[in-house]
Write a protein that binds this DNA or RNA. Structure first.
Lengths: 346, 346
DNA sequence: CGTTAGCACTCGAACCATTAGAGTGCTAAT
DNA sequence: ATTAGCACTCTAATGGTTCGAGTGCTAACG
C-alpha cells in the first residue's frame, strides 16, 4: 500500500498524538505539530483521503480523527521508524537484571515486572516451551516415612515436582531401587513422550516391583505433565487501569482475559520468531478491541524458547515498546542460556 | 454495648439490605422487610438513635442510612448470627478439593481460586509459615556439568530450590561429598537459623573443601531465604471489579494494594487463631476504607500454620463468608496434614 | 406512652434547554 | 495546489426545573 509521502507523515503524526492523549486528533492540533507546516485546511483535505482509505475514523462529525485498526497494522508493518533503545533504559535494565538472574524461575517471574515498570503497560513471560525438551535429570527425595518428592529438570531448565505417598515405608534400599530405575529408564526421555502409555509400558517391564513402583511412576507422569504446560507470569496489570479505555466495564473484560493464563500463553507463544504485534480485533475477541499485545521470543541454546510480551491499549508507543522488548528478550535469552546451557563445547 | 433488641434487629436488617444492594437503606424499604412489622415512622425514630450511637450514617440529608465502620465491627463481633455452611457449597468444595490436592503447592495455589469462586469475592492463601520449621531434607541435583540445583523441603512441606554454578566440574565423587555434607550438617536445622553467619561457620569448619563448598552453601542460604518468606497466592481479583465501590480510581488503589504481596501476606498471617475481620480503616490505609479482609488459619500438624483470607467490600456477606472460609480452612488443614505430616505415631 | 399517619422540607438524580467550542466540509480567493 | 473564511454539526458543559426518595416533626390514635 502506498499512499503518498504527505499522507504518511500526517498519519504518523496522528498516531503519535493519539498515543499520548487518547483523544481524537484534529487538524488544528496537527498543524501546530512541529514537523508539519501545513494549514489546517490542507491537513483536512488529506484527512478525507485517509478516511476513504479506511485509515481514520471519526467518533462523531465534529470530533477529530482516530486511527483505525487498519491504520495501526499499516503503521506497525511499514510506517513505523524503528528506534534504538533509550540508553538510560538500557542501563537501567542492565543494572536490575543481575540481581534477579540467580535462578531461572525467579528471572522469569521478575522479568514481566521489570518490563511493565519500564513500559508502564502490563507484561507477560512464559516459561520455555518443553515440547522438544528432554528430562535432563530426575530424582526422588524422601520427605517423610511414606512420602517422597519426584523432582525432574528438563533440558530447558524447567523444574517439575510432585509429591507421592505410598502404603509402605520408603526404606533407603527401596529409595535406591527407585532412584536407579528413574535414572536408567526415565532420564533422557523426551518430555513429550512421558504419556500414560509410556508409564504403563515401563511398569509392565518390571513385573517384580510393579506394585511398589506404580505410585512413583504416576508422580513422574504428573510432574512431566506439569512441566509440559508452559506457565505464564504476568506483571504490571495495574498499569492498565490508568488508561481511560480500560475504565469501567472494560476493566473487567480485560482482567478476565488476563486471568485465562493458558489461553494467553498459547496466544503469545505461537507467534513466529521476531517481534510481532497482535491487535485485539485480530484474535477474535471483539470485547478486547482496545487491547494490543506485542510479543517477542527469547532463545535458549537449542530450539527451546519462551515468549515475553507487552500488553496495553492499541495506541501504545510501539517504537519504544519494540525497542525495549527486543532488548530485554535478547538479554533474557543470554542470561538464561548462561544459567542453563552446559558449556559442553569447551 | 447494649442497644436494645429492636435497634439490633433494625441494624441487622440494614446491614443485610446494604450488603445486597450497596445503596443506602431507607425506612420504607425496611418496613417492607418481612421480619420487621413496624411503620416507617417508628423505624425512623429508632434510626436517629442508631445515628447518635455512631452506627449509621447518611450520605446526605435525603438519602437512606449506611452502616458505619463501627456498626460493622459491632455486628461482626456481637450481632452476627453464625450460620452453618450451605450443604450444597460444602458438597461442591468436597468435590473439587480432591482434584487439586495431589500436591501442597498446587493445593495452595488453587485454594484461593476455589474460595473466590464460591464467595464471588477475591481470596488469598499463604504458604505455611516456616519460622519454626526445620529443614526436613536437603539434596543436590546436578543439572549440567557445572551446575546443580539445591533442593530443600521443610517440615512444613514447603519446597525451596536454588540453582548454582561453579568453576569446576561436578564429578559424581564431588556430588557425593556435597550430598553427605548437606545431610549431615544442614538437614534438621531450623530454617530460621540458616543465616549468613551459619553458612560462614559451616564453611570455616571445613577448611579443606571450603572453596569447593562455598557456592553450594550460598545456594543453600538463598534457598532457605526463599522458603522463609511466606508466599501468598491470590485469586478472583476480577470479582472485585463488579462492585461499584471499586470502580474508577478505587480499582487502581485496590489493585495496587493487592500487588504488594509481602505486605498483604504479613497482614493476614499475623492474625490470631480463628476467624477475624479486618476493615480497611483499621489498618491505616484510608484509601482502602471500602475494603475488608476476613482471615482464617489452617493448621498443620505442629504449630506450623498458614492463612487464607477473603477480600471484598465492607458490605460483604459475613455470615456466609465466615462459614465458607472456616470450612475450607479446616479442610485445607486436614488435606495438607495428610500430605505432609508423617504418621510417626503409628 | 409507644406507635403511626400526615406533612412540610431537603437534597440529589434526572431531565430538559441553552450555550460554547471544537472540528468539519465546502467554496472562493491566493 | 494551498489556504482563509465561513456555515454547519455535534458534543460537552452549564444551569434551571422537576421528581421523588427519604427525612424529621407534630399531632392523633389505641
Amino acid at each position: 500500500m502506498d499512499i503518498g509521502e504527505r499522507k504518511k507523515k500526517i498519519l504518523k503524526a496522528i498516531i503519535r498524538a493519539y498515543a499520548m492523549t487518547g483523544e481524537p486528533v484534529g487538524s488544528k492540533t496537527l498543524s501546530e505539530y512541529l514537523d508539519i507546516s501545513l494549514s489546517p485546511a490542507t491537513i483536512r483535505n488529506e484527512m478525507v483521503g485517509l478516511d476513504e482509505l479506511g485509515l481514520l475514523e471519526q467518533p462523531h462529525t465534529s470530533a477529530g480523527r482516530v486511527p483505525t485498526q487498519l491504520a495501526y497494522r499499516y503503521y506497525i508493518d511499514q510506517l513505523m521508524t524503528k528506534t534504538m533503545i533509550d540508553p538510560e533504559v538500557r542501563r537501567y535494565i542492565d543494572s536490575i537484571l543481575p540481581d534477579i538472574s540467580d535462578d531461572p524461575e525467579r528471572l522469569l517471574k521478575e522479568a514481566p515486572n521489570l518490563l511493565a515498570q519500564i513500559t508502564r503497560y502490563a507484561a507477560a513471560a512464559t516459561t520455555p516451551g518443553s515440547d522438544q525438551a528432554t528430562i535432563k535429570s530426575i530424582q526422588v527425595m524422601p520427605t517423610g516415612r511414606r512420602t517422597a518428592l519426584i523432582i525432574l529438570v528438563t533440558s530447558g531448565g524447567v523444574l517439575g515436582n510432585k509429591l507421592f505417598r505410598c502404603d509402605f515405608d520408603l526404606t533407603p534400599e527401596l529409595l535406591r531401587v527407585i532412584s536407579r530405575l528413574l535414572s536408567e529408564r526415565v532420564s533422557g526421555v523426551p518430555i513429550a513422550s512421558v504419556s500414560p502409555a509410556f508409564v504403563q509400558t515401563l511398569a509392565a517391564s518390571l513385573p517384580d516391583v510393579a506394585l511398589i513402583v506404580s505410585p512413583v511412576l504416576i508422580a513422574v507422569y504428573e510432574a512431566a505433565r506439569e512441566v509440559r504446560e508452559a506457565e505464564i507470569n504476568l506483571g504490571g496489570q495495574v498499569n492498565l487501569l490508568s488508561f481511560p479505555e480500560f475504565g469501567g466495564e472494560n476493566a473487567k473484560l480485560l482482567f478476565e482475559f488476563l486471568e485465562k493464563r493458558a489461553e494467553l500463553a498459547r496466544l503469545i507463544s505461537k507467534q513466529q520468531e521476531g517481534i510481532h504485534v497482535l491487535m485485539g480485533q485480530e484474535f477474535g475477541r471483539p470485547e478486547l478491541k482496545d487491547m494490543s499485545i506485542v510479543t517477542a521470543h527469547y532463545a535458549l541454546g537449542g530450539q527451546n524458547r519462551g515468549a515475553i510480551a507487552v500488553i496495553g491499549p492499541n495506541r501504545m508507543d510501539y517504537p519504544n515498546i519494540v525497542a525495549n522488548l527486543g532488548y530485554l528478550a535478547s538479554a533474557l535469552g543470554k542470561l538464561l542460556s548462561e544459567l542453563l546451557v552446559d558449556p559442553e563445547s569447551e
